[in-house]
């Protein structure tokens, strides 16, 4: 078994075993007013992704992520999608902006990769 590090900045972080989506899950959930985090990938896409991930996993031994935040690498940069539920005293406007900014902060700490889009969707306000 070789120890070759993955060239992928998204999925590995030296020193920890957690992937970027996993870390973003934690970051998003820590934003005040976020009381739920839904899987951001549409159902069909999620299934396809799981199949691919399983295949990749089989080939590379890489760990599959169960994160809710979805991170896709495109030519123009990362496409990040988050779907949240908001706690009613907080407002959808404030919380969605704070979630966006928290993700940006985390990315800056994470080698500042190119970003094509950060999509934050508020799916429920309770």
């Amino acid at each position: 078994m070789s120890d070759a590090p993955s060239p992928d900045p998204v999925s590995t972080d030296p020193g920890t075993s957690s992937t970027l989506p996993d870390r973003l899950d934690k970051v998003v959930l820590a934003v005040p007013g976020v009381d739920e985090l839904y899987s951001a990938a549409p159902l069909v896409a999620a299934v396809v992704k799981t199949v691919i991930a399983t295949t990749v996993e089989a080939v590379t031994g890489e760990q599959k992520s169960n994160s809710s935040v979805s991170v896709d690498e495109k030519k123009a940069g990362l496409e990040i999608a988050v779907k949240i539920g908001v706690n009613a005293p907080y407002t959808a406007i404030d919380v969605s902006r704070r979630v966006h900014d928290a993700i940006t902060d985390q990315l800056e700490q994470n080698g500042n990769p190119d970003v094509a889009e950060i999509a934050v969707s508020v799916a429920r306000i309770d």
Partner: peptide, 30 residues
């Protein structure tokens, strides 16, 4: 809730890469 999400209603942000929204379903909820 996916079945009742409806349209995405945009929320503005100063960053050009931000795409913030609240679903129509969430708005009906409030």
């Amino acid at each position: 809730l996916e079945a009742r999400a409806g349209r995405d209603i945009p929320i503005s942000h100063s960053s050009p890469t931000a795409r913030l929204s609240v679903t129509e379903g969430a708005v009906r909820g409030i």
